[in-house]
Design a protein around this nucleic acid. Structure first.
Lengths: 222, 222
DNA sequence: TCTCCCGATTTCCGATCCGATTTGATATCG
DNA sequence: CGATATCAAATCGGATCGGAAATCGGGAGA
């Protein structure tokens, strides 16, 4: 009834904990394989164990933490070579198709938004490589998420954004090299969108993913 | 130390509840949109609320139940036309590719197993259409799951099997029509596997999915 | 007859508690 | 000295409890 005053909405403590943990995991504040104690976290955050469990239960299904019965939770380990390849293969099945659909379905406004995102990624980055990567990663995630959304297939969008989290954690190890290459490849995708060229968009997206794959292949060869 | 006697392993009550709820949802014992009360279930199953919450939390992420804050859980509603189309589109991206990989990677043993599954689906079904569909659905799910597994991409397999649950719930409305058509299409897929023909397998899988889509399209037109 | 309001009941969310099991460090033995 | 047994502390899974919000039903008023 009252539009000016905020109605005090009850918070979902479990969700808050989820967000906090997700940030900690994404920023490596909680390292891979690190043990995560439920009651330690409960004391730390000043809440009871119940919402902690709820959050961890959700993170487990997303593959970000691993539960061992009667032993506790651990942050997931880094992607193995096999898992990384599987992820790339999956992306090659989904994202080029999403890009192709997006090329025809995307509105002018969405295209503008995407262009803005790409432009922002070209801006000179802070000298600190860590925060430079953080800025990049956030834009990059949105870039891909927007394309997935423009495909107008909600299921596709969900899966793409979901899997991207793992990719982020993987890249976090090598944030120095990633940014520059991605920028020119994003430009190619945008060009295809501007031309309303589905197969061109798919091809550009495919190249983008395959290059990313190739860039990190060396990592596993030692 | 003792290999003959089973070591009494502590059970994960939460998992048990999860399995029970999954069965109830898949068999429509819990109907779409039906409210699911945590402490009612707790009394019913003779356990506390804690494992119930854990199970429901997992089901929520799989999209099988829906949580409204401070209001409770509800079984998910039937797929809308849009969601159904999205699901089909996703399957067309994933399963033909999985079939193509499977055609080259599948071992002879796995191929035999798949043939057995397909053969079992051709057996005369019980006269009761309901249990006939149940038998069919179980084999059908395994058929697709085995193909996804043979693709040797764990991520792909997970997503395919995951999404299949929703398809099952959808089809449950119309179990009469489904079975017969699927059998001959499965045979076509198997033929391609026997010929070790990736693109043939992909094509057959694609046709299978598109036919399934077409068969149910009429449902939404009234 | 329909709508609105109000109270009782249901039910959820989060907190706390407890028995059972793992973990890890120390002590003991070969 | 290394491996195994032992024991204490940490921690999990599940049970129980209390406050708060939503739902449901009945009754009053238009």
């Amino acid at each position: 009834m009252n539009s000016t005053y905020q109605i005090s909405k009850p918070v979902r403590l479990g969700m808050e904990v989820y967000d906090i943990l997700l940030k900690k995991l994404m920023s490596l504040e909680i390292q891979p394989e690190e043990r995560i104690s439920v009651d330690k976290l409960a004391r730390e955050l000043g809440v009871s164990q119940t919402p902690i469990r709820e959050a961890l239960s959700q993170l487990e299904i997303q593959g970000l933490v691993l539960k061992v019965h009667l032993s506790g939770y651990r942050a997931a380990s880094q992607l193995t070579r096999k898992q990384f390849d599987d992820l790339c293969e999956l992306r090659l099945l989904l994202e080029p198709a999403a890009a192709a659909k997006a090329a025809t379905l995307m509105s002018v406004g969405e295209l503008d938004e995407l262009s803005t995102l790409a432009a922002r990624m070209e801006e000179p980055s802070p000298s600190d490589p860590r925060s430079a990567y953080n800025a990049f990663a956030q834009q990059d995630a949105r870039f891909h998420a927007e394309i997935a959304r423009a495909s107008q297939n909600d299921l596709l969008r969900e899966i793409v954004t979901q899997q991207r989290v793992h990719l982020h954690l993987f890249r976090l190890r090598f944030y120095a090299r990633v940014t520059q290459d991605a920028i020119v490849e994003h430009a190619a995708i945008l060009d295809a969108f501007r031309r309303r060229d589905p197969s061109g968009a798919a091809t550009a997206m495919r190249a983008h993913i395959e290059n990313a794959h190739a860039r990190f292949k060396s990592v596993y060869e030692d």
